[in-house]
């Protein structure tokens, strides 16, 4: 008991970082889990499974000298999991909307995903929510790329100038960039919002932020 009582508590406690809840959405098979695994453990699994409901991983990153702890929720894209995944949207700080560049339907469905997210996450103002659009699987041969960057960019600008990142979880292209861009987008939006005084305290206050920014639980504010 003596050995465990102090060391971990104190060492952990000295690191203070902003806690952000990130949700990854998109059609089944576009590579959401692969993106998460590549980002968190720099690992790619050729043999992939359908995600069961939800999966969750933590990742600490540093952006512009600020440290962040991302709590990443990977969701199951299949329709039958809808009721099981939507409860997890509430309280998100960032949403990654993903499609596969070789799958035009998954791109088309971005609209559906976006509105599903907005509805269940109960986001008050769409414009103030940091979405990032991620086009995965750019490693496919040019001939198989069915969603052009221009198309995607156009969609993003129609939807309020959302940032677009084309990635490949397989060969690790832009994965880190996508998540960094997401955090940056959050930070940018956050800076516009008036911060409460709690802001500069410990990481716990960020947990509160997570609630507060979703506005689902006014009692937290």
């Amino acid at each position: 008991m003596a050995a465990s009582r102090s060391s971990n508590g104190i060492s952990r406690h000295s690191q203070r970082s902003t806690l952000l809840k990130v949700v990854i959405l998109g059609d089944g098979g576009v590579g959401k889990s692969c993106l998460m695994n590549r980002f968190v453990s720099n690992h790619f699994d050729e043999q992939s499974f359908h995600t069961i409901g939800v999966e969750f991983l933590n990742k600490d990153i540093e952006i512009n000298g600020e440290s962040y702890t991302l709590q990443i929720w990977d969701t199951a894209g299949q329709e039958r999991f809808k009721t099981l995944r939507t409860p997890f949207y509430r309280g998100s700080d960032i949403c990654l909307l993903t499609y596969a560049v070789d799958d035009p339907i998954s791109f088309k469905n971005l609209n559906l995903w976006k509105s599903e997210f907005l509805y269940y996450a109960d986001v008050p103002a769409e414009s103030s929510f940091p979405f990032i659009i991620v086009g995965n699987k750019v490693d496919v041969p040019e001939s198989e790329k069915r969603v052009t960057t221009e198309e995607a960019e156009q969609w993003c600008s129609v939807n309020g100038g959302l940032p677009l990142v084309e990635t490949s979880a397989k060969d690790a292209t832009n994965v880190e960039t996508a998540f960094s861009a997401a955090v940056a987008a959050w930070a940018k939006l956050e800076a516009r919002v008036e911060r409460p005084l709690l802001e500069d305290t410990v990481d716990l206050s960020k947990q509160q932020n997570a609630y507060r920014s979703s506005c689902c639980l006014p009692s937290f504010v």
């Binding site: 069961i52 409901g53 939800v54 969750f56 999991f81 099981l84 995944r85 409860p87 997890f88």
Partner: peptide
């Protein structure tokens, strides 16, 4: 069983 897992995850969260 898959639903049970997702719900438990939700409840735990």
């Amino acid at each position: 069983i898959e639903g049970a897992y997702a719900f438990i995850a939700k409840i735990v969260d």
